[in-house]
Amino acid sequence: MNDDVMVRVSDLTIGWEETILQEHASFDVARGEIFAILGESGCGKSTMLRYLIGLEDPVQGSVAVAGVGASHLEVSRPPFGVMFQSGALIGSLSVGENVGLPLEEWTSLVPEAIGAIVRAKLRLVGLGGTQDKLPSELSGGMKKRAAIARAMALEPSLIFLDEPSAGLDPVSAVELDELILTLNKRLGLTVVVVTHELPSIFKIVSKCIMLDRESRTIIATGDPRTLRDQCADPRVKRFFHRAAKEQ
């Protein structure tokens, strides 16, 4: 795997013994890309993400992330950051403590330096001054921003986002898209995003794969704008043009 490939998925089969969601999936995510995993509900997008970040063991095939092979969570510093759909901030910790958690675990920085990084990351995502608040005091959009700050704490070059715009109002969703673009362009961050928000896809995504629930395979790969305009597959057309299935 060369330096320009951040994620390599080879012949991956995901699911459980009786429920296979996707079979023989293979794709690469290049450095600096905003890569989206698309598909209808139930096709295994979020499950695919769980395999990429090492929360599940492949039924078959392999996943290599940031050149280090499969992720070994809990034993070494993770080479990526993850934002879960709900934000998944720890409710008993303040927002600042949530962001500082990976820094305390994986660096030898003194508390003042950790505090400095935490405040800077929160300002970066537009949450300056919220470090002493509890997650329950934040709105849905703010929780997602705080989760991005936490995912960015260890300065990873790769970040995974699970449905970042889901449940947000249009203004917050656009602001979050702007933030992802800023992180990608200014910091060179590679972003893998699971989403089915079309405006967001066309605005930020440079490459995507589309999963299909019935065939349990990847049915399209490429630039989402090109796929929208040129792909002949009716399933892909339906997705990008918001058309219902013909009965």
Binding site: E112, A116, I117, A120, K121, L124, A153, E155, L187
Partner: peptide, 12 residues
């Protein structure tokens, strides 16, 4: 320069 290092310099 990356974000973490910059954050420390800005704090100082």
């Amino acid at each position: 320069v990356d974000g973490g290092a910059m954050a420390l310099l800005v704090h100082l």
